[in-house]
């Protein structure tokens, strides 16, 4: 029988895979997908603890996280489209105008 810490371990590993994607990949769309992976890992952690304490507040929180993720994807992909129109690339290294 898996207990709450097994679910936390899966969530931690998924979160770390997301961090690794953001650090290693330079394709801005894949980096964005890895941010979604991290949000999902946090959702899994919240739901596991919500079930542990028998309290529904964690599930409401996950509901809100999903809404924020949907808005974030809509706005972020619009920004990526504008970026590709300007630069004609999805490599984040090419868009370093504000970087020193």
């Amino acid at each position: 029988m898996p207990d709450v810490w097994h679910y936390q371990m899966v969530a931690a590993v998924l979160f770390m895979i997301g961090i690794m994607g953001v650090l290693v990949r330079r394709n801005v769309i894949v980096m964005f997908m890895c941010i979604e992976l991290m949000l999902n890992a946090a959702n899994l952690s919240l739901i596991a603890f919500s079930r542990l304490w028998g309290n529904l507040d964690g599930q409401i929180f996950v509901f809100m996280v999903i809404i924020v993720a949907a808005v974030e994807v809509a706005v972020g992909l619009a920004i990526i489209i504008a970026l590709v129109r300007n630069r004609d690339t999805v490599n984040i290294e090419e868009s370093s105008l504000l970087k020193w």
């Binding site: 899994l44 079930r51 509901f63 999903i66 994807v73």
Partner: peptide, 29 residues
């Protein structure tokens, strides 16, 4: 992950996960 959510008695969130993440967000991607 939606399967894991359903295992944790979060059926509604699991359905939301399939509908919004798999159905809407990834289609947008």
């Amino acid at each position: 992950l939606a399967g894991l959510f359903v295992m944790l008695n979060a059926e509604f969130v699991g359905v939301l996960q399939v509908m919004i993440y798999a159905g809407a967000i990834v289609v947008l991607f």
